[in-house]
Amino acid sequence: MRKTLRLVLAAATGAMVLTAGAAITVVAPANAISSAVADPTIGAITVSDNFVPPSGSDKIPFKFTVTTPPFLNGKAPKVTAVFYKEGDATSGAGTAATVNAIADIAATATPPATLDVTGSVPITSSDKPTTDTGKWTIKVTVAPESGTTPAAVSRDDTFTVAKATRVTSASVDPSTVKLKSGSDIDVYAAFKLERGGAANDEKVTDVRLESKDSDDYYSLNTGLESDDSYHDSTSMDYDTTAGAWQLKVSVTRGSKTYAFVKGFSVTKGTTGKAKSKITLVASPSKVKKGKTTKLYGKVYRGYTSWGAWKKKILKLYFKKKGTKTWKFVGYVGSNSSGKYSKTVKPKYDGYWRLGATASSQTKSSWSPSKFVDVR
């Protein structure tokens, strides 16, 4: 009877009874290894990209390290953060910041000696510091997920918030680019970079003129002048896409890249063809019947100044004296300098001239007529 009672007692308590009057040892719960007993400590809070965005909203990332984080029974510690803008009383409740999730560990696992925590503070373009570097404060608190042991600990650190990067005085000249067939148009871009940080904090990483309706664009250089102003130009040809365009300036600061734009337009004229003209000389202008004369000259094309119309095929016509009808005689081609020549054997007194037919880029034209006297 006594032996049976002893075995029942052992089963009920989880203890092993060795002999009558021996000590009873209780096995520890399986998850006791995850119970934290030491108080946690919080390292310095560091921030990055701590500047006002030029427009819209953004985030200021922060991080810190917790030594002896209170993982109780595998449950991740409860970490919260608040911040105070420049001028806010730090004795108040503050504004909630975001803390990135911390994963639990296995209940039987040994808690890590340190824990890296990250999060972010929201900021908008309206958060303009009253000085070049306004002071903000961030406060973080670490506590066990439940219970009061170990006690919650807090830390607050101050950091500077610099003013925004700005691109000002942006311009494109001409603001309306009017393309003409057969010629290039020079387009000039300018702006001023207003830095919000130290001399090397902001970098212009891309400048381009780009179409808003297609993938057409022109790349410009990224170099600034000594006073942080910018000037560069490119030439647009008639193949450029017409429509809405913009000057786009990309500026990188920290891990952020911002784009600043200035709109302009590109148009194509409906009568964008170049003019043309043909000179003609007949030598000699008086010939004996059966002899030849040379017709020669040059064909030109252009808008405001004349250039050679290279490799142009001209049509040669003759009109007999006393008649009103021009008759086609043949073709004459110009060389790479726009010059042409043709030797003919006139049978009758009459007039000679040449014509240049229009192309997609150039208008048609006629040479003056030349009279050749046949004796």
Rank of each mutant, 00 (worst) to 15 (best):
161 V>L: 13
194 E>P: 05
191 F>T: 01
191 F>R: 05
142 V>W: 07
217 Y>S: 15
131 T>V: 06
188 Y>N: 07
188 Y>D: 06
148 T>E: 08
205 T>F: 05
186 D>S: 10
144 P>I: 14
140 V>P: 12
125 S>Q: 11
151 A>D: 10
143 A>V: 14
140 V>M: 10
198 A>T: 03
128 K>T: 13
210 E>Q: 05
156 D>A: 03
160 T>I: 01
204 V>H: 08
214 S>T: 15
149 T>L: 09
187 V>R: 08
157 D>M: 07
126 S>Y: 13
201 D>Q: 09
167 V>N: 03
187 V>S: 02
181 S>R: 10
214 S>D: 15
153 V>W: 05
208 R>A: 00
212 K>L: 14
171 S>I: 11
179 L>Y: 15
183 S>W: 09
160 T>F: 00
192 K>G: 05
176 T>S: 07
151 A>H: 10
189 A>V: 09
211 S>K: 04
171 S>L: 15
160 T>K: 09
179 L>M: 09
185 I>P: 11
161 V>E: 08
184 D>L: 14
133 T>G: 09
176 T>R: 02
163 K>W: 02
125 S>K: 07
155 R>Y: 02
202 E>K: 00
185 I>Y: 06
197 G>M: 02
144 P>N: 15
148 T>R: 09
137 T>L: 01
156 D>K: 11
149 T>P: 03
174 P>H: 12
146 S>E: 13
214 S>E: 00
139 K>P: 11
185 I>M: 14
201 D>G: 01
141 T>R: 11
126 S>N: 13
144 P>L: 15
177 V>C: 05
128 K>Q: 11
189 A>E: 03
158 T>S: 09
143 A>K: 06
177 V>H: 07
147 G>V: 08
179 L>F: 13
217 Y>I: 08
215 D>L: 10
147 G>Y: 05
197 G>H: 00
182 G>L: 06
172 V>A: 08
134 G>C: 01
198 A>F: 00
201 D>Y: 02
131 T>Q: 04
